[in-house]
Design a protein around this nucleic acid. Structure first.
Lengths: 160, 160
DNA sequence: CAAATATATGTAGTTAACTACATATATTAC
DNA sequence: GTAATATATGTAGTTAACTACATATATTTG
């Protein structure tokens, strides 16, 4: 009985729990990069890694790829441009588009990060490979939400 | 092979993924309350629910209970006080302490929220009860981090 | 019991995402 | 081929957590 109350509280506070965990991991991530003497912020990862894989992308396609609203991507790109890790140029065909790519400095940084990534990946695996795997759980939940939103699911229960 | 790259990328971007999911769930939570015509923000939940369970608490003990830094709690309490959902009084014994409790309005709101919670709980269960249960995964990861931090685990790999 | 330390609360400023709105260019439809 | 619509980018302001610092009161120690 009391267990139900606790479960309810946990479920209702799930966004809070997720955010706290996110903050915690990000702070430690930053410390790990520092310990390796690398000037890199965890929040840069999705943008830089995507450009590393895909070479050249427009702002919106990059945003879609990493799952961010485009203004968030723009502000990350501003930082990365200031750090000279990326550069951008106009698309000759569709002049609305700004094409973004890694600079040499960016490519060099990403390759020097390889060993750090190995460490982070191992530590993350160690922490998340519990009975219920967190990464897989996130993937599954995101897939479920894509199929039918939280709000629609709730509304189905409301109409009963 | 490609699968490994995707996994590595996912693991490295874990804080980003967690935060995005958190944002998404919170936004939908707000919409659900709105749909019920209840003036309630998801972020209020941990504070109000804890006060509902424990009656009266100081600012710091409340913060510890919900796992927030105390300034975050103070700013939530300010909002809740403005909404007249909570009130506070000095601790007669230890005058440094501010004791916080629900007002009648707060208690009434929480009881009218009971049916909404049921809907949210059901929708959340539906979304999170996949093969790897998200709530359980969070609990497991938080327990693992409490035992040994992410940074310490990474450092163990660095020294090899 | 006075000084040093610890604890409780509070304020100011930061961060990293967001939404809403604005503008420029491209595409589609008549 | 022009008008209407859609798409791409950008700016401004918001949000909800945080850290760092400041102050007041309690507790501990010599």
């Amino acid at each position: 009985m009391e267990q139900n109350v606790i479960d309810a509280s946990g479920l209702l506070a799930i966004s809070t729990r997720l955010q706290r965990l996110s903050d915690q991991i990000r702070r430690d991530g930053l410390l790990i990069y520092k310990a390796f003497g690398i000037d890199f912020q965890p929040k840069w990862f999705p943008v830089l890694y995507t450009l590393y894989k895909k070479s050249t992308m427009s702002v919106v396609s990059l945003s879609d790829e990493i799952g961010y609203a485009h203004p968030s991507t723009i502000s990350l790109l501003k930082e990365l441009e200031k750090e000279k890790l990326i550069r951008s140029k106009k698309d000759k065909i569709d002049t609305r588009k700004r094409l973004v790519e890694l600079t040499e400095k960016g490519k060099t940084l990403l390759s020097t990060m390889e060993p750090v990534w190995q460490v982070i990946i191992k530590a993350t695996e160690e922490v998340t490979n519990t009975e219920n795997n967190l990464m897989k759980a996130i993937n599954e939940v995101e897939a479920a939400l894509q199929e039918k939103s939280f709000l629609l699911r709730a509304q189905a229960y409301m109409n009963k």
